Structures are given as structure tokens and as C-alpha cells.
Computed example of a mutant assay.
Amino acid sequence: MTQRTGLILDFGGVLTTSVAACASGFDRRAGLRDGTFLSVIAKDPEGVRLYADLERGAISQEEWNERTAALMGIDGDNLLGRVLADLHPAPEMIAAVAAARAAGVKTGIFSNSLGSGPYDIYGGYDLHANHDVVLISESYKTRKPDPELYTIMLGLMELPGEACVFVDDTARNLPPAEELGIATVLATDSVSTITQVEALLGLSLRPEV
């Protein structure tokens, strides 16, 4: 087996707290039935199309805000920022990734875009300074799980699939990575995710106590 020397990470829900939990909090604050927002972007045909267009960079965040809010019958002003108001860094996961990089593992962010404004989900994380590679889907006008994007990511990492681990909190984003020989981890809680990554890299990524 090729030694695994690359760690590829989704952003939201991996280096941050749960996006789904944020959506539930938004529903409550907006006076919507629990599950409304996630249903609109994952099940409503127009909502699904709009969200895919946002991730591909085919529409701006401002346009997405207005058109998606209209599907829910609410105000669209900074909708994404309001939905993700409770999103925070996941410090244990961030520290583990930093430990992997310090040990010589190449790290890369592989994230579907949500646009850059008015709300910037990546603000304050200094991704380019803290990781070797940053791929945001809108720059390539496609999105995960498009297999082409995974090949591009490996090219940027300058590593074969067998040398990489990929962590994502969305199950449908994992199979294209597995097809390229990448070991995958479905992110749940930080402790479980870190344990799985440690096993795959053969490294301890947490401080000894």
C-alpha cells in the first residue's frame, strides 16, 4: 500500500460545526417548520437547481439569497449569512489537521462554493496560509460530486489517489474519491473523524494527556 501523505478536507461540517444544525436553528428563528430550509435545497426541484448553481458559481450569492428565500416566503436579505449564523470553527479538527501538516502530510481544502459575499463562509480561516492546496468549486464551474473535480484536486495535490485521505460530511461526495483509490472518511463528530484519520495516516493527531 502506498503511504498516505495527503489529507483532503471538505470545509463546512468538517472544519466547522454542523451545517445541518445551523439550518435547524435558522428554521426556528425564522418561524419555519423544522427541516424547511434543508428540504428546499435538497428536495424542492427549483431549490435543488438554485443550490447547485450557487455551488458551481453559475449564480451569485445575492441572486441565490433572493430566489431561495422566495421559495420559503421569507425575506432574502443575507439569507445565507442568517442560515449559517451559528456556524463556528471545530477547534479539535482544525488542530488535528495542523498536526498532520506539521508531521509532513500535505493538506488540501476541497469545498463546494457558497459564493464570497455578502457572507463569506471562509472568512477568518486563512485557508491558503494553513493548507497546501485550496480548491473552491466555483473556480472550475462545477461541484462535488462531479468526478472531474476530484481528478483536478489530485493534480493540485500532486499525489496519487492511493496516497490520500478525503474527509467530507456528505456521503454522496465520497464515492468519486473512492473510485480514484482515495481512502474516505464520512465526518460525523470530531472525535470519531480524527480517530479514523489517525488510523489511515498512521499518525497521532491529538496532544497526549
Rank of each mutant, 00 (worst) to 15 (best):
M1T: 10
M1H: 04
T2Q: 11
V14S: 12
L15Y: 02
L15E: 11
T16N: 08
T16S: 02
C22M: 12
R28G: 06
A30H: 11
G35N: 03
G35T: 03
L38C: 13
V40R: 13
A42V: 01
D44T: 03
P45Y: 01
L50N: 00
Y51M: 09
A52G: 14
E55K: 07
R56V: 01
G57L: 09
S60R: 12
S60V: 07
W64P: 01
T68S: 00
A70G: 06
L71G: 02
M72W: 04
G73R: 08
G73P: 06
G76F: 01
D86H: 02
P91T: 11
E92D: 14
A96F: 05
A100K: 08
R101I: 00
F110I: 11
F110C: 05
I121Q: 14
G123I: 07
L127D: 09
N130M: 06
V133I: 00
V133Q: 11
S137L: 05
S139A: 14
S139H: 14
R143A: 07
R143V: 05
D146F: 00
P147Y: 09
E148C: 10
Y150D: 08
I152M: 10
I152G: 08
L154Q: 07
M157S: 00
M157R: 05
M157E: 01
E158P: 09
P160A: 00
G161T: 02
A163R: 04
A163P: 01
A163L: 03
V167P: 00
D168M: 02
T170L: 15
L174T: 08
P176W: 07
A177S: 09
L180Q: 04
G181M: 01
T184Q: 07
V185D: 03
D189A: 05
S190A: 15
T193Q: 06
I194P: 11
Q196N: 05
A199E: 12
L201V: 07
L203P: 03
L203I: 02
R206W: 09
R206F: 08
V209R: 13
